[in-house]
Amino acid sequence: MASLLRTDDLHVSVADKEILHGIDLEINEGETHVIMGPNGAGKSTLGYAVMGHPNYNSDSGKIYFRGNDITSDSADKRAKAGIYLSFQNPVEIPGISLSNFIRTSLEQRTGTRIKLWDFKKALAKEMELLNMDPSYADRDLNVGFSGGEKKKAEILQLLMLNPSLAILDETDSGLDVDAVKTVSEGVGIFQKEKGGALLIITHSTRILEALKVDKAHVLVNGKITASGGEEMVSDINENGFEKYIG
């Protein structure tokens, strides 16, 4: 399988403090990787760095996407290349409706105008799948959304934008059982029907239950201390991180 994302000895700092101390990671097309680890290990930093947040500086090392060096590309360029980040705490933006936001994103990615009718139909379909009240389409982006609705809106964007690689940053945190199930189903569609690759950042395993996992990594203090297959996830689930913290 062709390599989708590859990081080579990636060092990342925020405000002159190094958080990630050399990350080597390779995700092939269609693969699902899980990053687990304690709070403060640098899991979200990895997500931001791959997405291209300007405050997360890649001091050394490289990020490749489909073989192209994207280390110094801006976030919008990376998004257009096919990377998506589902935020742990999506920002509230007044005055922009969820629907307009998704449509503008699609139009900016493709450079073509999208017919409103076709778009609305597609959006309504995905919203139904995620058990979202249709009225959310016209509401201001994330403004006043509950934690669960925010996460659903992230997955809605994932399904609508259909990237090649989705990074899910703690998408399951703060959700009730039903919401985790719905969100997980949405991610499952992305994984199975659309063949998308995933980098799932989590410290619980609830979201993984309905998903196929190819690889798992434990990230501690800015370093990957262990990597393994799906069995590692259930092991961590039962026994905790301790034995992987080297």
Partner: peptide, 18 residues
């Protein structure tokens, strides 16, 4: 907010348009 700009950019919207 830088975070808001980054959020929009992460969907493929240019900085200017964001």
């Amino acid at each position: 907010s830088d975070e808001a700009v980054f959020y929009l950019m992460s969907r493929g919207i240019s900085e200017e348009e964001a």
